[in-house]
Structures are given as structure tokens and as C-alpha cells.
Design a protein around this nucleic acid. Structure first.
Ligand code: SF4
Ligand code: SF4
Lengths: 177, 177
DNA sequence: CGAAATAAGGATATCTTTTGTCCTTGATAG
DNA sequence: CTATCAAGGACAAAAGATATCCTTATTTCG
């Protein structure tokens, strides 16, 4: 389902992959975006709705909370709600909140091992290899930065079957504190 | 060195990261690009030049070989050489040869767990979340597809100190079969 | 006030992936 | 014939992802 080409290159089937937490967080934000003003939705409800382990999903939601993307409330009728309007929440913010902000290419500075290199030689700036890879990372981020949560909700509201959309909304409302 | 922001978000310090093999393969290709026509360079020489474990680097080179990016030759004076001119070899080809071609976002289809979803409901196409993430992946690939190995060599030849560039070239030539 | 529900987060266990080593096989140059 | 090479299988160690359990402090509601 997720292979692009015939790619069967030795034992290297797996590509660098985002945590499944990212998918969970995106789905949860989409749900929270539909919540009426001031209401909260608990981890329990979000986990149940998506069929996910509650305790582990909680870690992803904590990531969103620490990044300031959601507000929380304790006690019964507590839970999560978005900290800003869906139109001001980007995909990149959500992805980075759970996945971190490191680049995909990390440089282990192997050029320092060059046997021809003088002992006192000091490369100051990152070399071209790293810069090129980081530009690709930035293109990835730029794309995600350009998509708002509200864009997603807009697409989903058109694509999801109306009766499913409606019943899901009601299911959530019943549990929103 | 590789952090973009202050990003200290819970235990999630690590981002999805490319194998170090990718860095190794890019460096090796840069070296091979400087090889005179018809000459080969062995795993042993490449590993020694970069200070890498020979047997493990070998796996990365096998990836390049299986992808048809390099030609190999057995026996003494054997090794690797590029299968095509550096101007026709893209970063993306090299990266995919060692890392694979899977997307960074894999969809575990959690929408199927929606308790409101009718039993016989069948979502055919991937939803908007997945499509958006895949577009970002494609932007990343497009960027890497646009950079040729010859571009890298051009930049390096300007940036690397001339005496180091020259001595490295000679070091390689001494060992090229 | 007291009980139940909640987020936050520490500790730990398990599984997968990455990284690395070792060895065998078959081919090739000299 | 011998030394050297790529290919690749088997295996081990380290790191990371996934998941569970438990404690603590806070808040709502009866
Ligand atoms: S800076 Fe360039 S040479 Fe140094 S490790 Fe990173 S990619 Fe390799
Ligand atoms: S297709 Fe969409 S809803 Fe289904 S698992 Fe993928 S991202 Fe989630």
C-alpha cells in the first residue's frame, strides 16, 4: 500500500518512517477542530474513537500540549481542545510536536577521517552534501507548513460520507465535556 | 549540530532519520566520480578513506550495485566505478538505493476503527491526511531528483582546500585498480 | 467535603530497526 | 596457484519505537 515503485533492493525494504503517533495526532487534531467552542475531549474518547491504546496515545497528546498546540483541562469533563483556530494550525506544527524537529540527514562528519587531512585542519561549515540534503528537508517542511488544519477539515467534510460525518460528530459531542 | 530549533519536546528528541549508510554512499559516489575512466576502487579503499567499517559499508555499496548505479569488478584491482556519468546520477537515486523507496508516512488505516462506521463501509482511496503527507514526501524527492552528482563535485572542487583536494585525489589514484 | 475522572509523566517491558562483525562462495588478475 | 575482490548469509549488539502500568496533582460534580 505504501510502496512507490517495485523497490525490492536487498534487505532495505524499510525507508525512514514517521512514528505512527504522527498519524494519530493529525487525526485527533481533525476531531478537535470540530469541537464546539470551549468544550474538551478526553484521551479516553479520542483513543476509543480511533481504536488506539489510550496510554500511548496520551504521549502524543502530551507532545501537542507541550508544543502549545492544544489546551488541557483536568478533572471530569476535562481533556483537550485546540489552542488556536484550525486556520492557524499547520501540519508542520503538529508533525513536529510529536516527531521532533531534527533533520532527516545527520552528518557524522566522516570527512574528518580523510587520511590526507592535516591534523590541524578544521572544517567550519557543513559541506555541500549536508546542505543539499537539508534543502530537501526544508522543501518537505515548507510543504507541510503550507497546509492548515482547516484545509484538512475542508477536504474531509467533502470526502467523508455525510451520514458517517454526522454520526461521528454526534459521537464526539456526546463525550465532549 | 543538527537541531533546527530549541526543540526539546518531551522524550521526542529523535526525528525520523536517514541511515548513516546514505551519507556513506553519497561520499563514496563523490569519490568514484573523480576516478579516471575504466578504473575501479575497492570497498577496502573507500572504507579506509572515510574511516568506516569495511564490511558494513559493503552493504551500502551492494545497494548501489543492485540499483545499477555502479559497476563492479572482481579480483585484485577490482572494485566499484560509476555506471553512468556523474551528470546523469541524481541524489535521489543514490539515497533510494540504500534507503529504499517507501514513503515517510505510512497509513495504518485507523479510520477503519471509527465506532460509527458501518460494518460494510469500505474506504477505497487514501484519505486527505495521507495524500497531504505524501505530497510533502514528493517535494523532498523532487528536490533530491534535481541535484546531480556532478553538481556536488562542482561545489566540492570549489570549497575543499586545493591541497587537500589534490592529495586526496592522489591517495585514491594510488589504490584504484 | 469526598469521590470520580482527568492530564502529566516516570518506570519498565517488548519488539523492530539499525549498526556492526564474521564467515563462505564464486570470480578474476597476475 | 594464490591473493584479492564483490556478494551475501548468519548472527550479535545497540538504539529506537511501541505499549503497559503506576503514581501524582488537579478539577468537576454530587
Ligand atoms: S558535513 Fe559533509 S562531509 Fe561532513 S559528514 Fe556531513 S555530509 Fe559528510
Ligand atoms: S488513509 Fe487517512 S484515515 Fe486512513 S489511516 Fe491513512 S491517514 Fe489515517
Amino acid at each position: 500500500m505504501s510502496l512507490i515503485g517495485p523497490a525490492k533492493i536487498g534487505p532495505w525494504n524499510k525507508f525512514m518512517i514517521l512514528k505512527s503517533q504522527v498519524e494519530w495526532a493529525l487525526h485527533c487534531c481533525a476531531i478537535l477542530a470540530g469541537l464546539p467552542d470551549g468544550r474538551y475531549l478526553s484521551t479516553k474518547a479520542l483513543a476509543e474513537f480511533h481504536g488506539l491504546p489510550k496510554e500511548y496515545l496520551s504521549k502524543a497528546l502530551q507532545g501537542l500540549s507541550q508544543a502549545g498546540l492544544v489546551d488541557t483541562s483536568l478533572g471530569p469533563s476535562g481533556g483537550y481542545r485546540l489552542a488556536k483556530p484550525p486556520a492557524e494550525l499547520t501540519f508542520l506544527e503538529i508533525v513536529e510536536a510529536v516527531e521532533g524537529r531534527q533533520r532527516t540527514f545527520v552528518c557524522t562528519n566522516i570527512r574528518a577521517n580523510n587520511p590526507c587531512r592535516p591534523k590541524d585542519h578544521c572544517e567550519s561549515s557543513p559541506c555541500a552534501v549536508a546542505r543539499i540534503m537539508w534543502e530537501a528537508d526544508e522543501a518537505w517542511r515548507a510543504k507541510l507548513r503550507g497546509v492548515k488544519l482547516s484545509d484538512l477539515v475542508g477536504i474531509l467534510s467533502q470526502e467523508v460520507a455525510p451520514e458517517l460525518w454526522k454520526s461521528s460528530f454526534e459521537w464526539v459531542l456526546e463525550r465532549a465535556g
